[in-house]
Write a protein that binds this DNA or RNA. Structure first.
Lengths: 279, 279
DNA sequence: TAGTGGTCTAGACCACACT
DNA sequence: GTGTGGTCTAGACCACTAA
């Protein structure tokens, strides 16, 4: 099989489960850090189905006893498993095996308002017109002289779960319907879908960050937790102008532990990309 | 002023200090973890230009002295800065301020061979035909009866830097030129660009993982370091067949600390997005 | 109230990079 | 050598959860 990275998940590995205390001993002289050996060992048992999804995982103190290592080592190992999206830690209760990551498509405010899928809710936090800073203006390909942009911050909920922090900038003259539509949303109404709008490609980039003190709690994470940070430029045109131009620049922040970010304009391909099932 | 933590032991609080750079003191009663306060404080000084790029950053022991915290706290703070891509740690030497993340476009093997940009090198590790497993076959939209795929693993170098681990699967009958071309590469020759090939969109997804013991060193990272894991399906057609079909399914692994992954067909972007820290 | 994960301390030893 | 980051230990107190 391909990379020794990220073995497939949920592989019903064959027999001989060595249930509780029979774990492979860690090798203190191998040069491989104990936390990494431990993460590997736990991952193997987990993939072998040693613990039921949604149910409990061994306690840190239990692992300490079983493997004979300090909690520092254990916490680093668990951190790897958390970042890999296979367990979650709940303060005060314990660790739990997680369902696979949800696959979320990256999109901006305009796309959301244009499609208005049923499972999506926008919790608008701020909406106003302002003058863009240099970077935003450059992304939006705006003329040198300052012209206002519609700046919206919101939390995108999918299936009711807060999923993405959105920070969106759009040239006010190109999408004049945007601010009123968002204000309707804020007021609890459902805005009409914009007519005369043809969206073309969106350019996206992704990188790793960590949540700050504000962002984390918004998505049910903590400050310092890993996050996927996306930048998106949505191109499109109205009937009036024939040229496709940038209509929106958006900042998108997702939890890195439980979301897999999809990035193409189309292509559902009929099947989910299975979480970490890396062929 | 007794601290809530560690009341029993006398911590040598150096009131005469607040050394050198007058850093904001950490607040042990704020409820915000010290490592997070420390990361924020260091990030602020860094953004303010307190340390030159490429040059040295304070030593862990120096930070310990200045802020009066243990190395555990410091290492967690530094880890946040590393994952945010603003510093690198070099074993035995110290910490260094990094240049901005490189923006790398996500692409697969076929695209690489089709474009053959000057700054790109492919170090092929394995190349062979084999039968796909179920997941790969599904992504490639292959017929139920088993037909061979060309399976290539390689390291993509950009500007000479090992940048991406590639694991690529293509239906052999749709891209028959692929295996010979890759074998030419392996032999040190430069294969011709494929003719009769029209690439259309690629579907990509991204998630967070960590490097294994094999993958990390390939890209100059260590086992356990954070990685961006991409799945890509490249669509396209040859002149012969009019329908655009999946030509390749690829696994892409990048270092999460120094790369920003671009995912659309366009958008050079010319500039870094400011303030990668989440609100 | 007992147990959990979250944070923190004050040590220690190592491999590695410098000089 | 000396100093660095990388790892690990054996404690501790906290806030939280659940019985």
């Amino acid at each position: 099989m391909p990379h020794p990275i990220n073995r497939g998940r949920g592989r019903p590995k064959q027999s001989s489960d060595v249930p509780l205390t029979g774990s492979r001993a860690l090798d203190r002289n191998s040069g491989v850090p104990l936390y990494f050996q431990l993460a590997t060992a736990l991952r193997e048992k987990l993939d072998a189905g040693a613990w039921e999804p949604g149910s409990s995982f061994p306690t840190e103190r239990e692992i300490a006893e079983e493997f004979g290592v300090s909690r520092t080592v254990i916490r680093r190992a668990l951190e790897l498993l958390v970042n890999d999206g296979v367990i979650v830690l709940k303060k005060g209760s314990g660790a739990f095996v997680t369902p696979p990551r949800r696959q979320i498509e990256a999109f901006g405010l305009i796309k959301a308002l244009s499609d208005q899928p049923d499972n999506l809710t926008l919790a608008v936090r701020t909406a106003r017109e302002e003058l863009p800073d240099a970077a935003v203006a450059r992304f939006l390909d705006m003329s040198p002289q300052p012209r206002p942009v519609t700046h919206v911050t919101a939390v995108i909920h999918i299936e009711g779960n807060p999923t993405c922090l959105l920070d969106s900038y759009s040239p006010a003259n190109r999408v004049p319907w945007l601010l009123p539509a968002v204000q309707e949303l804020q007021a609890g109404a459902k805005p009409p879908k914009p007519s005369e709008l043809i969206l073309s490609r969106a350019a996206v980039s992704v990188e790793l960050t960590f949540f700050g003190r504000w962002g984390g709690p918004q998505l049910g994470a903590s400050a310092g937790d890993p996050a996927l940070l996306g930048h998106l430029v949505q191109f499109g045109r109205t009937k009036a102008s024939e040229q496709a131009r940038p209509l929106e620049f958006a900042h998108l922040v997702y939890r890195a532990d439980n979301t897999q970010l999809a990035l193409s304009g189309a292509e559902p391909s009929a099947s989910q990309v299975p979480g970490s099932q890396t062929p």
